[in-house]
Amino acid sequence: MERLRKYGFVIGFLIVPVTLYVVFVISPYIQAFQLSLTSWNGYQAVPNFVGLENFTRLFKDEVFWNALRTHGIVLLVMPLVVLALALVFSFLLNLGGGSRGAGMRGVTGSTFYKVVFFAPQVLAVAIVGVLWKAIYRPDEAGVINGVVMKLGGEPIGWMSDPDLALWSLIAVMCWQAVGFYVVLFSAGMSAIPKDYFEAAALDGAGRFTLFFRITLPLLRDTLQVGWVYLGIAAFDCFALVNVLTLDAGGPDGVTTVLPVEIFKTAFTYSKVGYASAMGVALFFLTITFAVLTLRVTRREKIEL
């Protein structure tokens, strides 16, 4: 009776979300695995079973490796830049002003900066894309190139120069993501008891020491979560690449990502089976990344 009550309670809470999750997430996943073994074109009533042919072709596909390279670069660069910037900003906003009177405070005007940093987070990704399209516009009507050309420079192909396009894209991703992590880390920092900072400050620790010896170690869990989130975001990037880059993934595939290629392959080229194989590959990549990150960064928790 006791057990029934307890489990009944738990099941009552879980039944709806789990059902929804199974129907809308798990079952499409299972279907994608099935379809990846077929040559389904999206119209056939009965898909043709082709075994692992899609996967063998995938590993020889230049487009697939292009997309993987983009994911790799984004995965290396974006989380590092975002986390570093967010840490610095949130430290300055919350603790950077040093201890004045009771407790620590941020630099002057920190509430204003908080709004500024968070603003991009409020914008829909599509709007961010359109906005940056105008900023990166390659002729004299572009926000940056307008200035460059007024100063007598050559127009810069922010999104059309294959050497530059990916970095322009990563810059936008960082710009958009930083705000959220500033808020996340601010919350984490406010959870650190003020006494620690006061005690350290009494012992003569400067801001630099405070940051590296107290803030950073105590924020470890939050950082880890941020890392996983950003890593998974690096495997997505669908909307931004679709809106911002030259014909979704160009020029010459340097900014293409797997989700964009999956969409094109399935709905433009009618190769749903092959696209599902790409989806399966993406699934394993994301899972591997999350598991690895959680493993590598696992450590005994510090009790506050």
Partner: peptide, 8 residues
């Protein structure tokens, strides 16, 4: 022509 058209 001009390369900037490649981005428009």
């Amino acid at each position: 022509s001009d390369k900037s058209y490649l981005g428009l």
